[in-house]
C-alpha cells in the first residue's frame, strides 16, 4: 500500500493506544461491576467506605445517658421523653471534647413546631396541646413560663 494511505492508519492506531493507556492509568482498579449487574451495580467499590466513614453528629439519647444519667432518668418521667435530647440541645458530635458546650435552642419557634395549633380533623397534630402564636404572648419565649422537660409544670 502507498505511504500516504498508511500514515493516517498509524496515527489512528496510536490514538487508540494512547486512549487505552490513559484509561488504564485513570480508572481505579476497583471500578467495575460490584453489584447485581452492569446497569445498577457499576461503580467504584471504595466509595462504599467513603460513605461509611462520614462522622456521626446525632448520637442519640443513650449517648447522653452515659454521663447525664440523673437528668436522663428524671426526664423519662415526663411527657417530653419522646423527644430526643439532641433535638433541642443540639447535635452532640464529639461532646464533651468537641464541642465542649452544646448550644441549646430555647427559641419560641422550636416549641411552635408541634404546639402551634392546627385544627386538622383526624390528624395527630390537632390532638397535641396547641396555641395561636399570634395571640398567646407573641413577644415572649415559651421557656419563660413553661418547663421544657416537664411541660405539665410551669416555671
Amino acid at each position: 500500500m502507498k505511504n500516504h494511505v498508511l500514515r493516517p492508519l498509524w496515527v489512528a492506531i496510536l490514538l487508540v493506544l494512547v486512549i487505552l493507556v490513559a484509561r488504564k492509568i485513570y480508572v481505579p482498579k476497583d471500578f467495575g461491576i460490584n453489584g447485581q449487574n452492569y446497569t445498577f451495580g457499576f461503580y467504584r467499590k471504595a466509595n462504599l467506605d467513603d460513605w461509611k466513614s462520614i462522622k456521626v453528629k446525632y448520637n442519640g439519647r443513650e449517648y447522653c445517658k452515659d454521663c447525664h444519667e440523673e437528668n436522663f432518668k428524671k426526664n423519662e418521667l415526663f411527657k417530653h421523653r419522646i423527644i430526643q435530647c439532641e433535638n433541642c440541645h443540639g447535635p452532640a458530635g464529639d461532646h464533651p471534647e468537641n464541642p465542649t458546650k452544646l448550644v441549646i435552642d430555647r427559641s419560641r419557634e422550636l416549641c411552635l413546631r408541634c404546639h402551634a395549633r392546627l385544627n386538622y380533623p383526624d390528624a395527630l397534630r390537632s390532638k397535641l396541646p396547641g396555641i395561636d402564636p399570634q395571640k398567646h404572648n407573641p413577644d415572649s419565649v415559651c421557656v419563660d413560663c413553661h418547663q421544657p422537660h416537664n411541660p405539665d409544670l410551669e416555671v
Binding site: 460490584n34 453489584g35 447485581q36 445498577f40 451495580g41 457499576f42 461503580y43 467504584r44 466509595n47 462504599l48 467513603d50 460513605w51
Partner: peptide
C-alpha cells in the same frame, strides 16, 4: 451513581 449490595442508592462524589 449506583446501588450498593444492601439496596442503598449512592452517589460517588469523586466520580
Amino acid at each position: 451513581t449506583y446501588q450498593a449490595p444492601d439496596g442503598a442508592v449512592l452517589v460517588d462524589r469523586t466520580w
